[in-house]
């Protein structure tokens, strides 16, 4: 019996080592391939350079960083309130047998391949922004024009893509709030809205926050869908209707035909993306510690 358990223990150990090792190997590989360009071109002129023109030997990725951040935060601004509201509705308001149908529909969103989202965006969302959204926007800013390939298009598609993550994790943590909390709140004379806003959401805070972090991770790393609908223009955006290029999109698009220096520069873009994701994760975890401490 004991030797049997030892074998199992070893197998589990190997699995744990494998996953850690692959992270390590990927990191080493990316840094090894990308560092030469960072060294030759200069880290600062690489990160803060405004021109990304690999054919001309210009590797400034600041417009790409702005593109990735604007699309990601746009997606969070649209996706998080929608996702949390959806989770509250499913747990607290809808009868559970009907909620099941809604829930599986939302979860089905996670199973759609991202390139399908991209083509949907290209064929439906981009023209819709140009024909329907632009006139409304022009009431406030008459000089605005857009082709539809924009931060807004990318943000809307990404918001839909992060919904399943945000909804299902938030929903689980809301459902895990002890029933006594609801009863106590209602017994104190609070109505349903007050109970949800002041008791349930604060109590489920840490779960909701982690759903946001996971959603952000998905949004920042998403490539195919965004590639097709943001226009891939490596220019600093001035409004949400401008086209942008993202870090991931640029890597995916240009890797196949790249010359050796260009390829190395794309790996350096990967390094920057890696660092941005790590920083955002650390920031989010700190926030979670501070805010979730009261629970």
């Amino acid at each position: 019996m004991k030797s049997y358990e030892k074998v199992i223990e070893k197998i589990i150990l190997i699995c744990a080592i494998l996953s850690t090792l692959s992270v390590g190997l990927i990191t080493v590989f990316i840094f090894h391939s990308g560092l030469p360009v960072l060294k030759d071109y200069g880290v600062l002129s690489f990160i803060f350079g405004m021109d990304w023109k690999p054919t001309n030997g210009q590797y400034g990725i600041f417009p790409l960083i702005l593109g990735t951040l604007s699309v990601t935060f746009g997606a969070l601004i649209i996706g998080i309130p929608t996702g949390i509201a959806c989770a509250v509705f499913l747990v607290e308001i809808l009868p559970s047998n009907i909620a099941k149908i809604f829930k599986s529909a939302v979860e089905l969103l996670a199973g759609i391949p991202s390139v399908v989202y991209g083509f949907f965006g290209l064929a439906v969302l981009v023209p819709a922004i140009r024909t329907y959204f632009l006139p409304i926007y022009q009431i406030f800013r008459p000089e605005a024009t857009t082709t539809g390939f924009s931060i807004l298009a990318g943000a809307i598609i990404l918001a839909i893509m992060i919904l399943p993550t945000v909804v299902s994790i938030s929903e689980n943590s809301l459902a895990a709030v002890p029933h006594e909390y609801r009863e106590a709140s209602l017994a104190l004379g609070a109505n349903k809205r007050e109970t949800i806003v002041k008791v349930l959401i604060p109590a489920a805070k840490s779960g909701i926050l982690s759903s946001v972090i996971l959603g952000m991770g998905r949004a920042i790393g998403e490539t195919m869908a965004v590639l097709l609908i943001t226009g891939n223009m490596p220019v600093a955006p001035k409004s949400m209707l401008d086209s942008v290029a993202t870090l991931t999109g640029t890597i995916a698009m240009e890797m196949s035909y790249a010359t050796p220096t260009h390829q190395s520069a794309l790996f350096a873009v990967g390094i920057v993306l890696f660092v941005i994701i790590m920083l955002l994760n650390i920031l989010a975890q700190l926030m979670m510690k501070r805010m979730g401490g009261g629970q």
């Binding site: 021109d51 023109k53 054919t55 001309n56 082709t147 390939f149 590639l227 097709l228 226009g231 891939n232 223009m233 490596p234 220019v235 086209s243 290029a245 995916a252 698009m253």
Partner: peptide
């Protein structure tokens, strides 16, 4: 390559 940067790039 003098292609303007205000061009939509498709892969």
């Amino acid at each position: 390559d003098q292609t303007i940067s205000q061009a939509i790039v498709q892969p």
